[in-house]
């Protein structure tokens, strides 16, 4: 069923809501003062979207990404991820939701240094308890897609930043998540490598129908995004579909 959805999404026939934020607020206590990081944000992301959330530092874009990724809990409103109400879930349930539905890509790659490239990529599948044969096949396929088939045995420290980010993309992609959240994925890369990485993600978005949401203040990422949401002081400033 999920495969049929995926094909329909790739062909643009079907759009399924994967993230729905309704009047979401998030408050932090910082040095004894309450900071309103998000003030009533309402957004919807459909399957197969390639969107960017842009805004200056402290605007709330990373906070929104963390809430959408079930890494943090909302203060008010509702946050639905792939049909599940994240606000009503326990930490254990949120962890399992992340494991099954959400992929993350970070600015600092955040790979497991003691695992090889293929072990890093296959790790999410291992956590899911998928059999070895399938893990091997899917890892080989994803390695090929991200252009790292000949680097499978290397450790992260033996690779360049761009290559490490490719590994991170492959790791996020391999479990075929409902959504991939990328927090400033090109910030540590030079523009050429950054463009390569973006091209790769665009290609994967088209071929696999995976939903990508970026938080960024890199104009290049904004250029690549098909939907650009600007956020300022915890509120949506604009939401433009190109």
């Amino acid at each position: 069923m999920r495969e049929i959805h995926r094909i329909l999404v790739i062909k643009g026939v079907y759009r399924m809501v994967v993230i729905k934020a309704e009047n979401v607020t998030k408050d932090y206590a910082l040095d004894g003062q309450v900071v309103n990081a998000l003030r009533g944000v309402s957004l919807e992301f459909g399957s197969g979207e390639f969107s960017a959330i842009a805004g200056p530092s402290g605007s709330g874009k990373s906070t929104f990404l963390h809430l959408a990724g079930c890494l943090d809990t909302i203060t008010g409103g509702t946050m639905t991820v792939d049909g599940a109400d994240a606000g009503k879930m326990s930490k254990q349930e949120l962890a399992l939701l992340r494991r099954n539905k959400i992929g993350f890509i970070f600015q600092a790659y955040n790979l497991i240094p003691v695992l090889s490239v293929e072990e890093n990529i296959s790790f999410p599948l291992t956590l899911l308890g998928i059999n070895k044969k399938e893990i091997k096949e899917r890892t080989a396929k994803v390695l090929k897609e991200v252009g790292l088939a000949d680097m499978a045995k290397r450790r992260p420290k033996e690779m360049s930043g761009g290559q490490q980010q490719r590994v991170a993309i492959a790791r996020a992609l391999i479990k075929k998540p409902a959504i991939i959240l990328a927090d400033e994925p090109t910030a540590n890369l030079d523009s050429t490598i950054g463009r390569e990485i973006l091209e790769l993600m665009v290609a994967l978005n088209k071929s696999e129908g995976t939903t990508f949401i970026f938080s960024t203040h890199d104009t290049m990422v904004m250029d690549y995004a098909r939907r650009l949401i600007r956020i300022r002081d915890g509120q949506i400033e604009s939401d433009v579909v190109k």
Partner: peptide
Amino acid sequence: IKEIGMMGCLGMTR
């Protein structure tokens, strides 16, 4: 600490 955060992002339970 960052690695632990990443583990949490991958969906690893406590």
